[in-house]
Amino acid sequence: MDRRSFLRSSSALVGGAALSSLAGCFGGSGSSSPPPRRAQVFEDVSLDGRQLQIQFVSDPRVESRVETTEGSLAVGQLSPVGVASGQKGGGGAARGSGSYSSAPRGRHGWAVWHAGNDDDDWRENHQDELRMYPAMIGAAGVAYLGSDQRYEDDPPDAGPVPWDKKWENQQDGESHTVPLSEAAPSDAPREGWYRVGTKLVGEESGTDFGWQGADFEIDNEGTWQIDKAWHVRPRV
């Protein structure tokens, strides 16, 4: 799976551990399909021994297609936020088998699920519809998604999952330390796939922008480390 190739890139280093590339479905979104939205949510996600370290940015922002009134978000005028459907079966297997090596990279060097070569063309054609909005993190959660094999066979869609740990009403720039044994409830840390998710809410409008997150694989090869990580976001 080229499991260390991206870790060797200095641009992939995030804090004490590399969130280098997650298993995600990389397929060109095509000029007719909206790309994954852009957002600024995570300042850092890393591992310190067996402790998962999560830090959020102090000024979250989220991209959306909207109608505006005097430059502000017109509540109720949001274009529908599409959900990036997970591909099952063979597509799901490809999500965890190394396609990250050719996937476009986002902030932190993480691969971007469902991003494609035509994304810039799509944005150019829809530039009048797009805007970045100030947001708040209304809720956040951590979930264990399962073993490598289970995740490859049936990767979850963008959006919420049954959270093993959840926080409400996050403060700007807030951080959390979560033992792996709590992130994946068990007597001992578990290898496999995890999701850190955030629910974004418009700072000015209160508009619900839904959930997005990062999926990543944690391995134990003498030391616990993050192997692959992806931004997993709905389409804009």
Results as ranks from 00 to 15, higher is better:
55 Q>R: 15
54 I>N: 05
101 S>D: 00
82 G>Q: 13
125 N>D: 01
111 A>E: 02
105 R>V: 06
45 V>A: 02
79 S>L: 12
77 Q>D: 02
42 F>D: 00
113 W>G: 06
90 G>C: 12
72 S>I: 03
125 N>R: 09
84 A>D: 02
44 D>E: 08
50 R>F: 09
75 V>L: 05
80 P>C: 00
43 E>P: 10
84 A>T: 04
46 S>K: 15
124 E>N: 04
73 L>I: 01
59 D>S: 04
99 S>H: 11
88 K>W: 02
69 T>A: 05
115 A>M: 05
117 N>A: 05
89 G>L: 07
107 R>F: 06
82 G>N: 14
96 G>I: 00
68 T>M: 07
92 G>C: 06
76 G>H: 01
69 T>L: 06
73 L>Y: 09
57 V>K: 14
86 G>D: 00
36 P>V: 00
35 P>N: 02
103 A>E: 04
36 P>K: 09
62 V>H: 08
69 T>S: 04
61 R>Y: 07
74 A>C: 14
65 R>N: 08
82 G>I: 13
41 V>R: 03
106 G>W: 06
92 G>R: 06
74 A>Y: 15
102 S>T: 04
82 G>W: 11
127 Q>T: 07
93 A>N: 12
84 A>I: 01
61 R>F: 05
104 P>F: 01
93 A>K: 14
63 E>V: 14
52 L>N: 10
99 S>N: 09
95 R>N: 08
118 D>E: 08
90 G>L: 15
50 R>T: 13
91 G>P: 11
93 A>W: 09
101 S>H: 12
92 G>E: 01
52 L>V: 04
36 P>Y: 01
54 I>D: 00
121 D>V: 13
50 R>H: 05
55 Q>S: 15
38 R>H: 10
87 Q>F: 05
46 S>V: 04
51 Q>T: 14
86 G>S: 12
45 V>S: 03
66 V>E: 04
119 D>R: 11
88 K>M: 13
95 R>T: 10
72 S>H: 06
107 R>G: 02
105 R>A: 05
127 Q>G: 09
98 G>A: 05
126 H>G: 07
89 G>N: 08
117 N>S: 07
120 D>A: 10
35 P>I: 03
37 R>D: 00
40 Q>F: 15
90 G>D: 02
47 L>Y: 09
41 V>H: 07
82 G>K: 15
86 G>T: 06
95 R>S: 12
121 D>W: 11
94 A>L: 12
91 G>E: 02
84 A>L: 07
48 D>L: 12
121 D>Y: 12
55 Q>V: 08
61 R>V: 08
32 S>I: 01
75 V>D: 00
93 A>G: 09
97 S>L: 07
120 D>R: 14
41 V>M: 02
105 R>F: 04
115 A>V: 01
109 G>H: 03
98 G>Q: 04
41 V>I: 10
86 G>A: 06
91 G>Y: 08
44 D>A: 09
121 D>T: 10
75 V>F: 03
116 G>R: 15
114 H>K: 13
78 L>E: 07
87 Q>K: 15
